[in-house]
Every structure is written in C-alpha cells, then in structure tokens.
Amino acid sequence: MKSNTEIVAMLNKVLTSELTSINQYFLHARIYKNWGFSQLNDKCYKKSILDMKQADKLIERILFLEGLPNLQQLGQLSIGEETPEMLNCDYHFQLTQRTTIQQAIALCESQQDYVSRDMLSDILEGEEEHIDWIETQQYQLEQLGLEKYLQAQL
C-alpha cells in the first residue's frame, strides 16, 4: 500500500531514534552489569529489547507503506561515566525522542494515517513510562543519596 513520502520520512526519523536508543540502553545496561548493579542492568537491558521490538514494528510498517526503512542511520549516543550522569543522559535522550514521536503522531493525524498513528501512540506510551521510571530514580537518588541508592541496585 503506497503512502506519501512525508510519512515514510517521519517514520524513518522515529526509527533512527529507536535504533540509537537500542544501542544506548544496551551499552548502559552492560556498563551497570560490569559495575555489579544488576537492577539497573536488567531495567536497561529490557528497555533495549523493547526498543528492538518497537524498531521492528516501524520497519514492518515502513515496508508495508512501500518505503525503505533506513537501518544505516544512527544518532549520537549519550553515554555517561557514572550512574547519575547515565540516568541524566537517558533522561535527555528520552525527552528528545518524545518530541520526535509527538511530531510524527501529529503528522500521521493530519495525513489521516490512523494505523501509523496508533502504532506511534503505543511506542510513545512505552517511552513515557520510561521517562517516569527515570524521574523516580532521580527522586530516589536525591532522597537516599548516591551510596544508599546504589546499594539498592545491587
């Protein structure tokens, strides 16, 4: 089914963001694992896998719309050096990604591509949940202090 190039370009932009996200969370997960913070490792690993599934949906949708999914394009990874910085990097990445998805949803709505819009809404829901999780971590960090917070992540 043929769609307009504007929608395919926008879906590709969201795909780039997801592909970047997969790598960023995978690297962060394994950095946490290397430090022995298994809770944070699990969370970031699962986030990375979720992003892969979301990327898969986007790839299939782009192909369905007779476009070419761009798996070559990758954004800049923001990798922190210690836990609070890593959470902060993820937080800013999530906020940027949220704006991108919102723009994509608005475009799909205006072009009456309701199926793509629904798919993007599902993706956005997952991303917002993760933003909330990061905010919870930042709150805990502030309340417990770094040492106690990290002890809870072993």
Partner: peptide
C-alpha cells in the same frame, strides 16, 4: 559523559 565514543574521549 563520553563525547566521542570512537576514541572514548569525555567532556
């Protein structure tokens, strides 16, 4: 944070 991932250079 790491600015350059290729060479591992930080801010």
């Amino acid at each position: 944070m790491y600015v350059c991932i290729c060479k591992g250079i930080t801010d």
